[in-house]
Each structure stands twice: as C-alpha cells, then as structure tokens.
C-alpha cells in the first residue's frame, strides 16, 4: 500500500476524532484552569471572573519555590530509580519464557490497578512498628526491637517507586521486546563480557526509549499526592499535596489553578529541554 500525502480537506477526516478528543479532554480543561488561575479569589470562598496576578504572586515565594523544587527533585529521583531498576528487569523479562512473561505482566498490571490510597495504606502498614517488616527482622534476629520505618523520605520514595515501577516496565517492554537479541550476541563475540555488552550496546541502543520512559515516569510521579502524606513528614509534601489542600479544603480554586499551571509549565519546560538534549546527542 502506498501512502499518499493528503490533498483534499476530506483526507484529514481521520484526524477529526483525535483532534476533538484532545480539545475536549485536554485543551479545554487546561484552558479553563489557566483562566481560573487569573480569577479573583473571594476570601469567603469561591472566585469572581477577573484578570489578576494575585495567585501567581502568592506562589512566587521562597516557600513555594522550595516545595516546587522538592517535588521536581522527588519525581526525578523516583523516575531515575524506576529506570535503573526497571531497565535491566524488563530486559530479562523480555527474554524470559512466554509463560514467565505472562505471569509477570499480569502481576504488574494488577499493581497498576491499585489506587494510590491502597498502595499508601499497604506501605504504611508494611513499614509500621506494630505490624511491619521490622517485626520480621526481629524474628529473624536481625533487629533488636521493631521500629517504625515511616514517616520519612525513604518511605515516600519506596512507595512512589513501587507505584511507578509497573508503569516503567510496561513502557519499556515493547521496545525491549523488539530489540534484536543478536546485538548482545554480536557484542559478546566481539569480546564484551555480558555486563559490559549490556552497558555498551543495549543501554545506548535504547537511550531514546530510556529518556522517554524517564520523562513519563517523572510526570507520573509529579502527580502523586497521597503517598507523601501517608508515608512522609510535612516537609516531604509535594506541590500536588498543597494543590489538593487549596482546591479541596480551602476552596481556593484560583490559587490551586495557578500552582497547577506553574507545575505543568515547569514540567513541559523540563520535558522539552530533555528532548532537546536527547536530540542533540543523537545528532552528535
């Protein structure tokens, strides 16, 4: 079949449905959010249509800058850990027997179906003093007495990595399954031990996939707002937690919208930047 370039307006018809969906479910809501972020907040609740920068002014302080920085750093760290763990895991998974793959993929999908609430409660129990894994360590004689392993940064990180890892694996899987297995073999016959072959061939051959996965997991992790509350201390609360507080508990929609818009813009800027760097690398 030859692909003809579109000539008449009708040739663009297949694009109409996705375009409408994108407009209805992304452009319009985002537009409304941007609009609301400039509205005037009424201290008694609600807001009135206006064009003021008050919400943005409130956001541009060292305090919120710190929270934003922490949120971005946390999301980046989660994405990094997920890729570092998920990449070799997916590599092995894609090479495993069919039945083994199916079992793993079903398990990962079922984790993906768990809500953040369930994951948060499960981990806060697992890391608790009274019912958590420290009891197991005590029983094994590895620890003196059970201790709470939450709340702290490590607990937040663990929960978020747990939540994002299945996502990471599923994003990596198709590219990994398509990767020509003879690349690794060629590398081995050319004198590379298995680990070196993996690092010098599989990793660089899939660097675009890695970058794309990192970005997706990063954005995914940015949206996490329950795990930092359940597993962390207040200093580990992300911007998403504060957005939720403003939107749900303070009814301050303009401020919540302004924070969300800022978060989206910063995220887009970072994603754009990393894509740019990625493209330059490939051109070089």
């Amino acid at each position: 079949m030859r692909l003809e370039p579109p000539r008449r307006a009708l040739d663009y018809a297949p694009l109409v449905f996705p375009a409408v969906m994108l407009t209805v479910f992304f452009v319009v809501p985002f537009g409304i959010m941007v609009m609301v972020s400039f509205f005037q907040r009424q201290p008694a609740g609600f807001y009135t249509p206006a064009f003021v920068f008050a919400s943005y002014e409130r956001f541009l302080t060292a305090f919120f800058g710190g929270v934003l920085g922490f949120s971005l750093g946390l999301a980046a760290l989660v994405a990094l850990i997920c890729v570092v763990i998920g990449f070799p895991f997916t590599y092995e998974l894609a090479r495993a027997r069919r039945s083994v793959q199916v079992v793993w993929l079903v398990a990962l999908l079922s984790i993906l179906s768990l809500s953040e609430v369930v994951i948060g409660f499960a981990w806060s129990t697992l890391l608790s003093r009274t019912a958590g894994i420290s009891n197991l360590l005590v029983w094994l004689g590895l620890m003196e007495k059970p201790t709470a392993l939450t709340p702290n940064f490590g607990a937040v990180l663990t929960g978020m990595v747990y939540q994002a890892l299945p996502y990471t694996v599923l994003v990596l899987y198709p590219a990994m399954a398509r990767l020509d297995p003879t690349l690794m073999e060629a590398s081995r016959t050319l004198g590379a031990p298995p680990l070196k072959a993996f690092l010098t061939v599989v990793v660089p051959a899939l660097r675009n996939t890695i970058l794309a996965t990192f970005i997706m997991v990063f954005v995914f992790a940015l949206g996490s707002y329950l795990l930092p509350q359940l597993l962390g201390r207040p200093q580990h609360w992300t911007l998403s937690v504060l957005i939720t507080d403003q939107a749900i508990y303070q009814s301050n929609m303009p401020f919540a919208a302004a924070m969300a818009v800022f978060l989206v813009l910063v995220t887009l800027a970072l994603v754009g930047l990393s894509l740019l760097v990625g493209r330059k690398e490939i051109a070089a």
Partner: peptide, 19 residues
C-alpha cells in the same frame, strides 16, 4: 477561618511544612 482563611492557611502550611 472565614475572614483570615488564606492568611491562616499560608502561615499554618509554612509552620508545619518547614523542616
């Protein structure tokens, strides 16, 4: 919580979020 809602919320958040 009605008249000083945002101010209270801001101070409170800073109070507990600050490390």
């Amino acid at each position: 919580y009605q008249t000083k809602s945002d101010w209270l919320n801001q101070k409170w958040t800073e109070l507990i979020v600050a490390g």
